[in-house]
């Protein structure tokens, strides 16, 4: 079992290695073959390397460079040094969005982790219709965030929406879910967990299915209860999966969901759903402050890199020693 990053650092298997020594009887032939192989490899990679350079690497670098400029409209670029960063830490709107994002992270990362793991532990068992349930639980992940936003706007409409009417029937008055600053962010959280949990369930399920069945058989023969089994077998053997989920869900929570905020709340009401990633979007595409937006975006990337590095350091590169 390995996480993407451990396999990335593993030396790739070299299927061609014995071939090279068999093929060329002379050094000249061998080096000609090696040259041919090298040229072929670069040609095979060329379309991607060019595309990734233009559409991923240059934007990444540009984002760092841009952070030191003031961009007016579409014309001029003025070098302003660290002014954008100074502005960032004196900007009460940015600072409050940062605090909000931190709260959002503290709820969402455990929320996604626990909902995904909980569902996976339930649907790993054999019972009638389980295959159908697995598929259905993933379904909200398949539709677009635009559709997700529309569905929930409809269900959560003030006073006449389905949820409001349902609560009305049991004698409760529904708040304005998306209109009240106190409720908007929690509502976004619930919706996000709703459409994401199926994805994390599948990842956890894959991890659970990698655990040898014999371990559980031995435990059940030993009379171990469900909690003991979970603590001594499932949890330790699931660590690589948990690591992967912590890493990817943090990135997803911090940078994903922008579509949802743009359509569902527009950062409001009263900025109550303005997370950092939305603030970046707003500064760039609403106020045209591309330099300032790039500075905040770079800050976000640095935080994510630091978090990834921390996770790797804590887990020694995502490698875990498996307890028996």
């Amino acid at each position: 079992m390995s996480t993407p990053t451990t396999s990335a650092t593993e030396p790739a298997s070299r299927p061609g290695a014995p071939r090279a020594t068999d093929a060329g009887p002379t050094g000249g032939a061998r080096s000609a073959r090696a040259r041919r192989e090298r040229r072929a490899a670069y040609l095979f990679m060329a379309p991607n390397l060019i595309g990734l350079t233009i559409f991923v690497a240059i934007p990444m670098l540009l984002s760092i460079v841009l952070a030191f400029f003031r961009v007016d409209g579409f014309g001029g670029y003025d070098f302003v040094g660290f002014a954008n960063f100074e502005r960032m830490f004196a900007d009460p709107y940015f600072l409050s969005s940062l605090g909000r994002t931190l709260l959002y992270l503290l709820v969402m990362v455990p929320g996604l982790f626990l909902s995904g793991l909980g569902l996976a532990l339930l649907v790993r068992n054999k019972f009638p219709l389980v295959g159908l349930f697995r598929t259905a639980l993933f379904a909200p992940n398949v539709v677009s965030l635009v559709v997700v936003a529309l569905i929930w706007q409809f269900l959560l409409t003030d006073d006449v929406g389905f949820i409001a009417r349902l609560l009305d029937r049991v004698g409760l008055t529904a708040p304005s879910w998306l209109g009240d600053p106190a409720f908007a962010l929690p509502t976004v959280m619930v919706i996000t967990i709703w459409f994401s949990m199926g994805y994390y369930m599948l990842i956890f399920l894959a991890g659970l299915q990698d655990i040898p069945r014999e371990y559980y058989e031995v435990a059940s023969i030993d009379g171990a209860g469900p909690w003991t089994t979970f603590r001594n077998i499932t949890w330790p053997l699931l660590k690589p999966t948990s690591f992967f989920i912590l890493l990817t869900s943090t990135i997803a929570v911090m940078t994903g969901g922008l579509d949802l905020l743009v359509i569902l709340t527009g950062g409001g009401p009263a900025n109550s759903t303005t997370l950092v990633i939305y603030y970046v979007y707003q500064q760039a595409f609403v106020y045209g402050e591309f330099g300032y937006a790039a500075a905040i975006g770079s800050f976000l990337v640095v935080i994510l890199l630091a978090w990834s590095a921390l996770l790797f350091a804590l887990t020694k590169g995502g490698r875990f020693t498996h307890a028996q």
Binding site: A12, A57, P59, L62, S63, A284, A293
Partner: peptide, 23 residues
């Protein structure tokens, strides 16, 4: 080269939205 390609996975689309737009 593989590590270079792999590292771009860390940077998700919304983060590079602004510079990508300019490019």
């Amino acid at each position: 080269i593989f590590m270079g390609i792999f590292s771009t996975l860390l940077v998700t689309a919304p983060v590079v939205l602004v510079p990508l737009f300019l490019v």
